[in-house]
């Protein structure tokens, strides 16, 4: 149950609604706790989410940073605390559009084969 649904319930039923809402939460609590405990225990034993955190451990130097920040418009009466689709804090999650190119480098006068052959 999200916050807005809860607000609708409260709005529609007044004081009685408050009590009903608390009772509903208390009834649901064991199921939520059970689900969460199951998930956490399985995770602790199987560690399926663990991986090499290369983005934190690989040495990398950043140079020639250029920034463009262009104001587009003002948005009003937004309901969410954060921008919709926020993904800048999840660097391992790819953006909708990804373009990954490998530059060929400056080829010498000979062919790639003379440089050691195409890999």
């Amino acid at each position: 149950m999200d916050l807005s649904t809860a607000q609708v319930i409260l709005a529609s039923s007044g004081d009685g609604g408050d009590l009903f809402f608390v009772a509903a939460l208390a009834f649901a609590a064991p199921f939520v706790v059970g689900w969460y405990a199951h998930r956490q225990m399985y995770k602790r034993y199987r560690n399926q989410d663990k991986r090499y955190r290369y983005e934190h451990t690989t040495d990398a130097t950043m140079e020639d940073l250029q920034r463009w920040d262009t104001f587009t418009h003002e948005r009003r009466r937004l309901r969410n605390r954060t921008i919709e689709g926020e993904n800048a804090n999840s660097p391992e999650v790819r953006a909708p559009y990804v373009d990954l190119k490998e530059m060929t480098g400056e080829l010498d006068s000979g062919s790639a084969e003379e440089n050691g052959g195409a890999q």
Partner: peptide, 20 residues
């Protein structure tokens, strides 16, 4: 409710990665 200014954001940079 929240009001916010929206921006188009572009970042461009060189990165030299060592020993991945």
């Amino acid at each position: 409710y929240y009001d916010a200014n929206e921006y188009q954001v572009v970042r461009q940079f060189d990165l030299h990665a060592d020993d991945l």
